[in-house]
C-alpha cells in the first residue's frame, strides 16, 4: 500500500494570553514524478486567513496570522499522498576521479547545496568521515555517498534529546549522537566537503505497519514527528536519496515535503507572536492507509519540554526538531 493519509498536528499552549501571532508552515507534500499530493488541507484553531506561495527551492509555504488574543494555537495539516513505484533508473557509475574534474561547474550551478551553512559548517572532523567512506566505497560517486550514509549510520547513535533544534553538527559530532536532523546535517557536511552537492529533505517516514497491505490501525511515524534525510546530486544530474538515520535505502515509505540547504530552510512550522507568556509545544504525526477510515484512533502525543518563560514582548514560536 503506497497511498497514505497524513495528519500532522502542531499545538502551541501558552501560559497566558498572546496575540498578533504570525506563522509560516511547510507542510504540504511535494507533487512531482515520484509522488502525488492528491489533497492537502490546513486547519488552524483559532481560525485564520492564510496565503500561500512557493519559496526559492520550490517548496509550498502557507502563511497565516491570528491577531486576537488566544492561549492555544493548533495547526493541523492533512494530506493524501500517493508514492510512485521507483522508475528503473540505471545507477550512475561515474567514478569520483572523473567527477572531480568537472566539479567546478557543479559548484557554480549548485552553489547553495555545496556551500557551508550555519547548521552545516565545514569542519575538519567531517574529512575523516569522508576518508573512511571513500575507502569503503567502490570508487564511484554513488558508492561514496552510500558508504558515507552507512558510516554515519554505524558511528552515530540515535538518541532523542541529545541535541536540540538549533544544534549545528558540531554538537552531534562531539557526542557522536543525535536525531535525524543531525544525521542528515552530518551527511550533508561530508558530501559537500568532498565536493558533491547535497540537499536536505524534510518529510515523513511511514512505518512498516502502516504500509502493510492489511494495515487498519493508524500508527505514529518517524519517531512521532517529521523525518529528515538527504539527496545527493549524481554526475548524471539526478538526485539520489540517502537516509543515514535509517541506514536503509529510501523507498516508497519516504514522503517528501520540502528541500533546502539545511533545516533552517524547511522548518515545518515557524512563527512569532506578542505576549509575555511562556509556551509549550506538542507535535503529533499520524498516518493511515488512505482507503480505510475504520481504524481505531490511538492518539499519541509527545510533549516537548516547556520553554523557559522569558519576558520579552515579541517572541518566536518554539521550533520543532526533526527526529
Amino acid at each position: 500500500m503506497n497511498r497514505y493519509r497524513l495528519v500532522h498536528t502542531t499545538e502551541f499552549l501558552y501560559d497566558g494570553p498572546v496575540s498578533e501571532s504570525y506563522n509560516e508552515v511547510r507542510l504540504r507534500p511535494m507533487h512531482d514524478e515520484r509522488q502525488s499530493c492528491l489533497s492537502f488541507r490546513l486547519i488552524t484553531a483559532p481560525m485564520s486567513r492564510g496565503t500561500a506561495y512557493r519559496d526559492a527551492y520550490g517548496n509550498w509555504v502557507h502563511q497565516f496570522n491570528v491577531l486576537a488574543e488566544h492561549q492555544r494555537l493548533k495547526v493541523e495539516a492533512e494530506s493524501v499522498v500517493l508514492a510512485h513505484e521507483a522508475m528503473d533508473s540505471s545507477a550512475d557509475s561515474t567514478p569520483l576521479s572523473d567527477y572531480d574534474c568537472s566539479c567546478h561547474q557543479i559548484a557554480e550551478e549548485f552553489y547553495d547545496f555545496m556551500a557551508p551553512t550555519g547548521y552545516v559548517p565545514h569542519l575538519a572532523a567531517l574529512e575523516q568521515i569522508a576518508e573512511d567512506a571513500e575507502a569503503q566505497s567502490d570508487g564511484t560517486v554513488a558508492g561514496f555517498a552510500e558508504a558515507a550514509s552507512n558510516v554515519i549510520h554505524e558511528s552515530f547513535r540515535y538518541v532523542k534529546g541529545a541535541t536540540h533544534v538549533h544544534s549545528s553538527i558540531e554538537d552531534s559530532l562531539s557526542i557522536g549522537a543525535g536525531v535525524c536532523q543531525d544525521f542528515a546535517h552530518v551527511m550533508l557536511g561530508v558530501v559537500r566537503m568532498r565536493g558533491l552537492a547535497g540537499r536536505y529533505v524534510s518529510g515523513y517516514l511511514v512505518p512498516g505497519a502502516a504500509a502493510a497491505p492489511d494495515a487498519k490501525q493508524e500508527d505514529v511515524i518517524g519517531g512521532q514527528a517529521s523525518h529528515a534525510w538527504v539527496e545527493v546530486l549524481m554526475p548524471n544530474n539526478s538526485w539520489m536519496p540517502f537516509d543515514p538515520t535509517l541506514g536503509k535505502p529510501v523507498g516508497l515509505r519516504h514522503i517528501r515535503i520540502a528541500y533546502g540547504r539545511d533545516y533552517g530552510d524547511v522548518a515545518p512550522v515557524r512563527g512569532v507572536y506578542k505576549g509575555h507568556a511562556g509556551q509549550r509545544l506538542s507535535v503529533d504525526v499520524r498516518v493511515r492507509p488512505a482507503l480505510d477510515d475504520t481504524g481505531t484512533e490511538q492518539l499519541a502525543k509527545s510533549a516537548a519540554p516547556p520553554a523557559p518563560a522569558t519576558m520579552i514582548a515579541e517572541r518566536p514560536q518554539q521550533p520543532q526538531q526533526q527526529q
Binding site: 504570525y22 496570522n65 515557524r270 512569532v272 514582548a313 515579541e314
Partner: peptide, 14 residues
C-alpha cells in the same frame, strides 16, 4: 521578524 531576524522589533511581522 517572521521572515528575517526573529529578534527584530523594528519591523512588521507578516
Amino acid at each position: 521578524s517572521l521572515t528575517f531576524r526573529a529578534d527584530s522589533i523594528l519591523g512588521v511581522p507578516g
